[in-house]
Design a protein around this nucleic acid. Structure first.
Length: 489
RNA sequence: GGUCCCAUCGUCUAACGGCUAGGACAUCAGGUUUUCAUCCUGAAAAUCGGAGUUCGAUUCUCCGUGGGAUCACCA
């Protein structure tokens, strides 16, 4: 049998999740690598649903998986509900195929019904543990096989007990001893196939050439390989992906260990392009110093030989940085579209709210956030209250640090008021041009500090030119006047 | 415990067996016209340990150590 079928076939990859809940970072990264490799090679990418465990199935998962992939821009050529040359992409709709292949193995004498009850199997296992030796069901394989009526689990008769050695694109040569080889269940007593069996049949029938999956499957490889051998079918190319570790590196990132639903990142205001870029860079690198990639650039740059062996910790801070990089790539219009759904109702109910002011405020927001969640947190802290509400503040904070009395600010504000009455408010630059000569004359902090504070009401805020431009001339003049009044004599 | 995998700054990573081990995030320090933010510049920061091969080892081999995965009628 030829296990190195190296003739150039069209690349076919697949992502094969089980519908047992939401998708997290790890699952999506696996999907991404399979997708990138297929696209890179003008191949086919299949989304296959492995729903052979009806106990664990979570309703709605299939939609959720598809929505997650769509959000990221990962498209599939064949998937659930689609017309394909190989039948359904949902395993529960392919049951007759698995049974057919099971019978092939039975005919070859390489599969047999398990004669034991679950209790008996458990007893064998207990004995083995007590005797401190590995438990292998094949040690209890019956002398002769009875016929399979479908009510008992169907087990593989491992064709050859041996050490398996195989090639992996990422890890190189791998091997495992015969202890890892056993008569695995192919078809469960409920008539559904196990993952072990079903994925191999489907990969064969769907023409899958490259299998990308996480390294938790390495230890099962001898079992898989023995099934390929029993079926006498060639191995696909194995591409083992490194695990994504929790940020403290103590263990693999998983649903029980704080891994978030990938769609939560959408809700938090991450861009799909940033998430894709970030995911691509955990466990892979382009070999250059480029770090920011668009979707198309990733496809071009992707190279499976540069996938890492070692696990990578999930670094949320770098994801934040990545999101900013991608935010920076947006046009002003795209950014406004991105931001709009997150604008809180409190903005619209503020006394001076209007769309023009909001439009002038957006660039300021853009400069200060990495995600929409950050924007919402800033809004909650009142960071942008000045835009639509005349500020209230203690007169004291108008005092510049070099002054001895807040009253010293008053003549400067009055001068600014005078200058701004005839100023060009078409941009923050023109406002700055109007005030700058006087600021240099009287001292920058001496003018700019009280001016900024009286416009924002805050010790920390954007610069006064931006504030004035955003709130407009009338409101600017009113707020300066109000400050002068507050200071009094 | 058995089996297997992995190991470069705190984190993600680069380095045909050959410059001073490079870049990014985070951190710290300066600067960018007043504060915050942005931006720029700079600094500190790593080859897990021990043998071996070699003129020369982050790189190859072995041992140790550490971490991870897996041992289901789950995928």
């Amino acid at each position: 049998m030829d296990h190195n079928s190296s003739e150039t076939k069209k690349v076919v990859t697949r992502f094969a999740p089980s519908p047992t809940g939401f998708m997290h970072i790890g699952g999506v990264r696996t999907a991404l690598f399979a997708y990138l490799y297929a696209r890179k090679n003008n191949g086919t990418f299949i989304l296959r649903i492995e729903d052979t465990d009806k106990e664990r199935e979570v309703p709605g998962s299939i939609d959720h998986i598809q929505n997650s992939l769509r959000w990221l821009g990962i498209t599939w050529d064949y998937g659930p509900g689609m017309e394909t040359p190989f039948g359904s992409c949902i395993q529960s709709e392919r049951l007759p195929l698995y049974i057919e292949f099971a019978h092939k193995l039975i005919e070859k004498g390489l599969a047999y019904p398990d004669p034991y009850t679950p209790e008996e199997v458990a007893a064998f296992k207990e004995t083995a543990i007590a005797e401190k030796r590995p438990f292998l069901i094949r040690d209890h394989r019956p002398e002769s096989f009875c016929t399979w009526d479908g009510t008992k689990p169907l087990r593989l008769k491992v064709p050859e007990i041996k050490r398996y050695v195989w090639q992996d694109v990422v890890r190189g040569e791998l091997s495992a001893g015969p202890e890892m080889l056993d008569d695995v269940v192919l078809i469960k007593s409920d008539g559904y196939p196990t993952y072990n069996f079903a994925h191999i049949i489907d990969d064969l029938l769907m023409g899958v050439t490259h299998i990308m999956r996480a390294d938790e499957f390495i230890s099962s490889m001898p079992k898989f390989l023995s099934i390929y051998d029993a079926l006498e079918i060639p191995y696909p190319v194995f591409v083992t992906l490194p695990p994504i570790l929790r940020d403290d590196r103590t263990k693999k990132l998983g649903k029980r260990d704080g891994a978030k639903d990938i769609l939560d990142y959408r809700a938090d205001g991450y861009l799909p392009s940033a998430m894709m870029n970030f995911l691509a860079l955990t466990g892979w690198n382009p070999g250059t110093e480029q770090e920011v990639f668009s979707h198309d650039e990733l496809i071009t740059a992707f190279d499976i030989t540069k996938i890492q062996k070692a696990g990578a910790a999930f670094n949320e801070e770098k994801l934040l940085w990545m999101n900013r990089q991608h935010l920076n790539l947006l046009t002003p219009e795209e950014f406004a579209t991105f931001l709009t759904p997150a604008i809180p109702a409190s903005f619209k109910s503020a006394p001076q709210y209007n769309n023009e002011t909001l439009a002038r405020l957006v660039p300021t927001i853009r400069e200060r956030i990495n995600t929409l969640t950050e924007f919402q947190a800033e809004v909650e802290h009142g960071e942008y209250d000045w835009a639509f509400t005349a500020p209230t503040y203690d007169t004291d904070i108008l005092k510049w640090k070099n002054d001895t009395d807040v009253k010293q600010a008053r003549p400067r504000l009055q001068k600014a008021l005078e200058l701004l009455k005839n100023a060009d408010f078409s941009s923050s630059e023109t406002i700055k041009a109007t005030l700058w000569p006087y600021a240099e004359e009287v001292g920058k902090g001496e003018l700019l500090w009280p001016l900024r504070v009286c416009l924002s009401g805050k010790v920390q805020s954007p610069d006064p030119f931006t504030l004035a431009y955003t709130i407009g001339q009338l409101e600017t003049l009113a707020r300066i006047q109000s400050a002068c009044d507050k200071i009094g004599e």
